[in-house]
């Protein structure tokens, strides 16, 4: 595949003695939507967080548009990642977190403007205009001056999505975006994500919402024990899994179905 925007080669990640990711090769092409599923502790969030260097890979490389990020340091495959380079990557690879991570001392509008002003160096007036447009898009046109603490979880997560979108990233990473939401608020966030899918955006989603993953994704990855256990279309992985391990994982979801 030559049209990969992002390519991961031989990715390992350890926290001390704990070997979380054990050699992952992966690439995303434009307009692909990848859902990553797996049990807790399987390493799916860690994998996602290595893509925008929230975690630094222990081994292996991440390449954006064919250019490997960082440079080799020492002979053992470790790499040195200068801050400026990582900041440039993060500008292009946006992220939405499970816990929203909005800035509580800024209004909703200021939250969305922050990256535009400090990172992109936009004038405040222009930044305000773009931030307002993104907030309208996620249905929060009436909440510009509210502080995050006054919003519901679903609204906060939509602000976080608007904040990431405003930076016009080429790839969006969602790290369990609905896992900390009350069940009745999950829908409003998933609808926004689906709307982004309809626009043809390139996205990676770590989620426990298998139903959503099925409809959302062009590719599903089942991650277990730090490796990709099964990769395929939503039908292949979620409906006709070939691996025993995948079937066992999916069975736990249907155990109490009705």
């Amino acid at each position: 595949m030559t049209d990969a925007i992002l390519r991961v080669t031989g990715l390992h990640k350890s926290f001390g003695d704990h070997h979380v990711l054990k050699g992952i090769d992966f690439s995303v092409a434009a307009a692909e939507r990848v859902a990553i599923i797996g049990g807790s502790g399987s390493g799916k969030s860690t994998f996602l967080r290595c893509l925008n260097f929230m975690e630094l890979p222990s081994l292996g490389t991440v390449a954006l548009d064919g250019r490997e990020i960082g440079r080799p340091a020492g002979g053992d495959g470790a790499r040195y990642y200068p801050e400026a380079e990582l900041c440039a990557v993060r500008e292009r690879v946006g992220m939405v977190f499970q816990q929203f991570n909005l800035f509580p001392h800024m209004t909703v509008l200021d939250n969305v403007m922050e990256g535009l002003v400090t990172v992109k160096g936009m004038k405040r007036a222009a930044a305000r205009e773009r931030a307002a447009a993104e907030l309208e898009k996620v249905g929060l046109g009436a909440k510009f001056d509210a502080y995050p603490g006054r919003l519901s979880g679903g609204q906060q997560q939509r602000v976080a999505i608007a904040r990431a979108l405003a930076m016009e990233p080429e790839i969006l990473l969602f790290d369990e975006p609905t896992s900390s939401l009350d069940p009745e608020l999950v829908g409003e966030v998933l609808r926004v994500i689906r709307q982004l899918a309809d626009e043809g955006r390139t996205m990676l989603l770590v989620t426990h919402e298998l139903g959503f993953a099925y409809h959302f994704a062009t590719k599903v990855i089942f991650l277990a024990d730090g490796v990709f256990h099964e990769v395929g279309t939503p039908d292949e992985v979620l409906k006709q899994p070939r691996q025993e391990r995948t079937r066992a994982f999916l069975a736990r979801y249907t155990e109490f179905g009705f």
Partner: peptide, 24 residues
């Protein structure tokens, strides 16, 4: 989470400290 939210936007350590962390 505050550091991560800001880092994910591409902000640098100094900017994060000044605009996100210290005001809080």
């Amino acid at each position: 989470g505050q550091w991560e939210g800001a880092r994910a936007l591409g902000m640098r350590r100094g900017q994060i400290l000044r605009r996100v962390i210290l005001p809080q």
